[in-house]
Design a protein around this nucleic acid. Structure first.
Lengths: 118, 118
DNA sequence: AATCTATATTCAGGATATTGAATATAAGGG
DNA sequence: CCCTTATATTCAATATCCTGAATATAGATT
């Protein structure tokens, strides 16, 4: 658990970008797919994908494919802790209109978009 | 308490450098002067001063002059929290060979040399 | 197979960060 | 004053990051 300053600097560097911070903040609520990130941020898809690549290479997130969609999730306890310190504790994400536990995507979407559809 | 992602990114960027992280880690033990940082890191003075300038401009540290020496201290609660998360809680700094409270420098130095990381 | 949809990659430019070298300032002591 | 010590700043070269544009891939659908 005793990382070098170099290792830690790499983590901080990955966090040192407003768009990446925004993405990570969304991921704190649980796994979501790229299209949802794209919708939440209102940026071009390719741009989002570039930032996601940075987060992937820094080891902060991992992916899961489901058909055409790719779901991202936080996998770095350190990053989660740092985000909690920087952004505040996030209330437990409670699905607003859908409680089907077989559909993490739908649940996440409901929370991301503020409970739009479904 | 609700900072923008841009504001937070600036803080993370200041932390995203191994030498600056090392300096900040030293400062967690309390106020120390530049010469001590220089000794602890074994880098050129001008280089240390450059990194300190970055930390100053990011609002993470402030200085106090005492004769020829300049003492630096952490002034950002957020940065302190992030450092604690990344580096672990620091034990209360107990001076090893000197308990003279008029000499924060000596106290800090004792902790610096006793708390090697990396 | 052709095509659509979701996501990823490559490329290039400009912007910014890094860091060594040299120099500048500021304060204390003789 | 001059000198020494402690620290800061400037300059320049290189490296890295940022981001738009274009393109590529992989899976689903017809």
């Amino acid at each position: 658990m005793s990382r070098t300053y170099d290792d830690l600097a790499l983590v901080f560097r990955a966090l040192a970008h407003p768009v990446r911070l925004h993405i990570l903040d969304l991921l704190r609520g649980g796994e979501i797919c790229v299209c949802q990130i794209e919708a939440a941020l209102g940026k071009r898809q390719a741009y989002i994908s570039q930032q996601l690549m940075v987060l992937r290479e820094a080891g902060l997130v991992e992916t899961r494919k489901e058909g055409l969609q790719v779901f991202y999730r936080l996998v770095s306890p350190l990053a989660e802790t740092l985000l909690a310190s920087a952004l505040g504790e996030r209330p437990v994400p409670v699905p607003l209109f859908c409680s089907d536990s077989r559909l993490p995507a739908a649940v996440a979407e409901a929370n991301v978009s503020g409970g739009k559809r479904l």
